[in-house]
Design a protein around this nucleic acid. Structure first.
Lengths: 210, 210
DNA sequence: AGACGAATGTGAGAGGCTCATACATCCAAT
DNA sequence: ATTGGATGTATGAGCCTCTCACATTCGTCT
């Protein structure tokens, strides 16, 4: 944990290769996407032999999954922030959808990773990240869904919200709306609106006195 | 274009290698996912030398994209069928979302392909497939959205519907709800409900300043 | 019919990647 | 100081993508 710079004179050992590899992986994926990523390149950028990464990660997918997990951690922080800026539970739910889309435009590579097929399935922690997302919002959902509909409806709403958010991000990153960076803000607005419509559809006709 | 079977005696030329490769690609992706796919394997299954595919497809991604395009064609047929079985425009919109999710569980490999990052971006026809999907449903959307909200609201609704459908499929295939094959039917129901909520939410008087 | 050019497939190979295995080096606990 | 375990290196097998020169066949033009 000591040397942060790189290759001191006797720096046979790296210090914290695992973390450095994850950082390199995020960089590479940002530049060339998951498909363009290679363990060898990550090793090269970390100034380490091609075999070294395999001391820390079982295989290519394990490194990618670790990087994806890091992304999901950062994303969680973003969600938390988005939640605090909203006032009503109504708005809080909608705002998270919007912030999700905005985050996608900025951290494209990260989402490439989060959505990469097969990674979530193999890595339990990663698969649970969606559930965490839901848990984070559960209190707000309970305030929005009429109590007589029960907890199941609240969870259903949150699943639907995850789905819209994720769906909009997918469409955005696919370029369906145009160059992602250029249209992200507007798409975020539309995603927010969709989320609001969803909340309305699941909840009572009017719960918001103006 | 004549021989369809395989290796007659003098079958130096294949007949329709391009189509056969696309078929093989779909098979392989169904079995081992996009990540496990290799052009070499597709060539092997088509009983052709490893270099042959490159006469028809510029590179690996081009073959994958062609396969994805084939999937999107089949999917379009599924959508059309789902639309005819629904009676009201309301139900029609919701039903397509459900059929999308059900289709995903059956043709997992196909969706792996459709959602593979980078393919859509590179292949124009593929990127337009989402827009086609929207065009397909536009008439129904116009019947559902109050006219005073204009065409933009109708398109917005359809985008939102695409997003939920796609989002639910993504969550399903990630295994968030459990083993995809087992939970698909139930998830389809929930997706349908979300779609209905969305349709209701957009049908309400506009609450958002644009 | 016969010949010729275009299309399509083959064979061999360069270069890169993943991952395994044996070996070198360094840290920490005794 | 020694020694055992963790970490990095060196090497290499096996697979993959994609290229290039060559072989084979098809369609077409005379």
């Amino acid at each position: 944990m000591a040397c942060s710079g790189g290759r001191e004179r006797g720096a046979y050992h790296h210090g914290d290769l695992a973390a450095a590899l994850v950082r390199a992986t995020l960089e590479i994926v940002d530049e060339v996407g998951v498909r363009g990523f290679s363990v060898a390149e990550a090793a090269r950028r970390t100034r380490v032999s091609p075999g070294a990464p395999y001391r820390h990660f079982a295989d290519r997918d394990a490194l990618l999954a670790a990087a994806a997990l890091e992304v999901s951690r950062r994303l969680r922080a973003i969600h938390l922030e988005a939640m605090t800026t909203a006032s009503s539970p109504h708005e809080r739910l909608a705002a998270v959808a919007g912030s999700y889309v905005r985050a996608a435009a900025v951290h494209r590579g990260g989402f490439d990773l989060l959505f990469a097929p097969g990674l979530r399935t193999h890595h339990l922690e990663l698969r649970d990240s969606t559930r965490e997302f839901i848990d984070l919002l559960l209190p707000s959902a309970f305030e929005v869904v009429p109590p007589e509909q029960g907890a199941k409806a609240a969870v259903g709403l949150l699943e639907a919200l995850s789905a819209v958010a994720r769906g909009y991000v997918a469409l955005l990153l696919d370029g369906v709306f145009g160059e992602p960076g250029a249209v992200a803000a507007e798409v975020a607005v539309r995603a927010t609106r969709a989320a609001r419509a969803l909340v309305d559809g699941y909840g009572l006709p009017d719960t918001t006195p103006s």
